[in-house]
Design a protein around this nucleic acid. Structure first.
Lengths: 138, 138
DNA sequence: ATTTGTGCAAATCGTTTGCATCTGA
DNA sequence: TCAGATGCAAACGATTTGCACAAAT
């Protein structure tokens, strides 16, 4: 427990953030398992379930702080809510439309070739591939 | 003018929609030029500018009707607002992050290869490639 | 002591909905 | 006639903000 906490504290400190009780708890939920895709709401209820008292405002604050610090990556797949991905490396996504579930696709599994020229004075900030998947209607 | 109107009316009729004054006016704004990327707000103000009286609710209704009818395609690039594309063919997008501007990339200009297997019982509903572009900071 | 974070409730923004009224077939 | 469209205003859900209080350095 101390080990994990220490790791998280260092991680948080490196991001120039103060390791507060709530922040550590959220980091713990986010970064202790494998890769995760969460929304503010799911993280909030998860926190409450585990007895961590945090307000939604704090959830949003920290999701944004973590994102700015490069600890999270925002994934835009749904017009109505924001997803955050704990996998910040270069990769893509399956999006299961019915249940709003995301799954990583490692960058190596998709070849994006022949990207057209971009306007002078601009830089590519990311190339996002989203494969939307639906259950068969039979 | 009649020619255009007639074309639009047929288009609307084929979509099983009634060619009402507002609907025709909106279709005219959407489908008379080349390919366009619009939001509810931009379409609304454009309509008002041209003296077409339409409520926002009607704009939303019709954007959705047109989308369901396959006359428009929704593009999810920005968590805070929805874009609709008059180009419904298979293609991708540049997204200029600073000004929220979209630009088409024809499907032929990007090769997406080696798409991984999708779960049994599911079908790919679309493969969206978004190249996010930012102005250089110099 | 000073700066940063937190929680609450109110405010905001895009979008949707309910309902009375109008309009096209 | 009458289903389908429209407009308005109210409702909505996700996100944000303002501000008083609490915690970290």
């Amino acid at each position: 427990m101390t080990a994990i906490k220490c790791d998280l504290e260092t991680k948080i400190r490196k991001a120039n953030l103060r390791p507060t009780r709530q922040r550590i708890a959220l980091a713990n939920l986010l970064f202790s398992g494998g890769n995760r895709h969460i929304t503010a709401e799911t993280l909030h209820s998860e926190a409450l379930e585990k007895g961590v008292k945090v307000s939604l405002a704090t959830i949003y604050n920290n999701l944004h702080h973590f994102t700015e610090a490069g600890l999270l990556r925002e994934v835009v797949v749904d017009a109505s809510k924001s997803y955050f991905d704990t996998n910040t490396s270069d990769h893509h996504h399956f999006f299961f439309e019915e249940d709003g579930y995301l799954e990583d696709i490692s960058a190596g599994h998709i070849n994006v070739k022949d990207i057209p020229d971009i306007p002078v004075g601009t830089t590519i900030s990311s190339v996002d591939v989203i494969i939307r998947v639906r259950k068969n209607t039979e």
